[in-house]
Write a protein that binds this DNA or RNA. Structure first.
Lengths: 115, 115
DNA sequence: TTTCTATATAACTATATAGTAATGTAACAT
DNA sequence: ATGTTACATTACTATATAGTTATATAGAAA
């Protein structure tokens, strides 16, 4: 396995890692319909301000979101809408795996559709 | 945010978590062209037997792979080929983000295309 | 049986990171 | 200048997990 391959796998892994946290998925879901400032994201996510700020910094590091500072507020937005394609693919696979009764399954699938 | 949403985000996060490790991506990549036994995966991945076994158990828990025991060997295979769609989506986004010179960029993109 | 091979697991260490509490900082308002 | 609001950061704790070493188990072969 070449050095480049090693690097490539690490890159991909880091990208998935950024998506591997419920709070971060909530934040990304909150940004689905456009930019929001930190206070709004705190309300939506139900997290604390400090924790949301930390997750936002991490998501920004991973280049999943962008920051726009306006006045005393900081507006965050999704860098690449294809993130939601990823999530929906995963949702499809998870829904596939689940063996719930029909009603529960339908509810779960629609809950999984985060975009 | 409903209880179901919380559960949904956790499910999705756990799925991404399984993909968020270079060694596991190597293993999945090794399974791209069909089932392989543990010894083969150890060789391909360059990991130790114990470590590869642990990652295989985790991937199996996440229902990304399946195990078929034949004689003294254990053959693993991908449960859902759509995993590679996920990886390619990520690869596309990472390649997009990278600002390398043309040659390096091309090499990296092709290295990223793990299927 | 004994032995060998293939795989799994347990115990351990080291590292990463999620969450919290407290503090820092920058822009705006008064 | 002072206060206030919005956000970021630091220091800390707790937990999860990657990797290693050593051991367990199970099937095949002798």
């Amino acid at each position: 396995m070449s050095q480049l391959d090693e690097q490539a796998f690490s890159h991909i892994a880091r990208y998935f890692q950024a998506l591997a946290e419920p709070m971060r998925l909530k934040i990304l879901n909150g940004l689905r319909d456009g930019e929001k400032n930190v206070t709004e994201l705190v309300e939506i996510s139900g997290g604390t301000q400090a924790n949301v700020s930390k997750h936002l910094a991490l998501l920004r590091d991973a280049k999943l979101i962008e920051r726009d500072s306006r006045g005393t507020k900081a507006y965050y937005s999704i860098s690449d809408q294809r993130i939601y394609e990823l999530c929906n693919l995963v949702c499809g696979q998870i829904a596939n795996q689940m063996s719930l009764d029909a009603a529960a399954n339908e509810a779960f699938i629609s809950a999984l559709k985060i975009n």
